[in-house]
């Protein structure tokens, strides 16, 4: 391992291509932490947004008009405003209200910027997920449900065994779009100083004055990261596709 790290030092000495994230232990740790932060933001937000989507779609079918209205209002807000504005709204708008006075007399926020980033990203993607799941459930034809009923399936069983599996398959393409988009949107956490990949990289280049190198590294990492996600989702889409349909 050390030999590899050393090689990058030699690379710097001979060509001037400066990649301290490989040969410098401190920068390497910073970079890896940033990468982890981006991954953590992505994974947690994906899980939370899918949960919001499922619950929201369920609430949207509620008999109470008030519940439906609230869910709709939520969707409208998060669908039609720029995600950057949403992050600012949570962090500066709500975050400044939720603070206590610390021992030094300065206000101390109750919710960290990382948590606000996760919250706002989850709500952002969740709004789209609600609509996606709802559309998926509605796309399951009434006749298929009727057939299940006539075979004596209870309502719950029809939902679990027939409606959900079909709705999920129908939703997957749109869901994939949204989740890929979510991972790309995690970069906006930079704006509230969350130490994710973009943020740490900018720290590294301002310390080392190696903007071009780090820029290319950044672009490459995101290309690989998002590309891998797209590929995995695509595989999954095809894996659960029912045989005998389409190509």
């Amino acid at each position: 391992m050390d030999a590899i790290w050393h090689w990058f030092r030699v690379l710097y000495d001979t060509t001037g291509i400066n990649l301290p994230i490989f040969y410098d232990a401190f920068d390497r740790r910073r970079f890896v932490n940033g990468l982890w932060m981006t991954l953590a933001l992505s994974v947690i937000s994906i899980i939370a947004s899918v949960a919001i989507g499922v619950v929201g779609a369920w609430l949207q079918g509620s008999r109470l008009r008030m519940t439906r209205r609230v869910v709709n209002g939520y969707i409208q807000f998060f669908r039609n405003t720029p995600p950057l504005v949403q992050i600012y709204f949570f962090y500066f708008g709500i975050g400044s209200l939720l603070s206590t006075t610390g021992p030094t007399g300065h206000p101390v926020p109750l919710v960290s910027n990382v948590a606000w980033a996760i919250i706002s990203l989850s709500f952002f993607a969740g709004a789209f997920n609600v609509e996606i799941f709802r559309a998926g459930v509605e796309a399951v034809p009434k006749t298929t449900i009727e057939a299940a009923e006539s075979l004596g399936f209870s309502r719950l069983r029809t939902y679990l065994l027939i409606v959900l599996p079909l709705a999920f398959r129908i939703s997957l393409p749109a869901l994939n779009n949204n989740l890929v988009n979510l991972v790309k949107t995690t970069t906006l956490a930079y704006a509230i100083a969350v130490p994710e990949l973009l943020y740490v990289t900018s720290q590294i280049w301002s310390d080392n004055l190696n903007v071009p190198e780090m820029m290319n590294v950044l672009l490459l990492v995101y290309f690989v990261l998002v590309g891998a996600l797209v590929l995995a989702m695509d595989r999954w889409e095809r894996a659960i596709r029912v045989p005998g349909f389409g190509a």
Binding site: T143, T144, E146, A147, A148, E149, S150, L151, G152, I162, L166, V242, F245
Partner: peptide
Amino acid sequence: RKEVSMVFQQYNLFP
């Protein structure tokens, strides 16, 4: 429905 089964025009198999 355990006593009466129905077959539909559009088959309605679970795809």
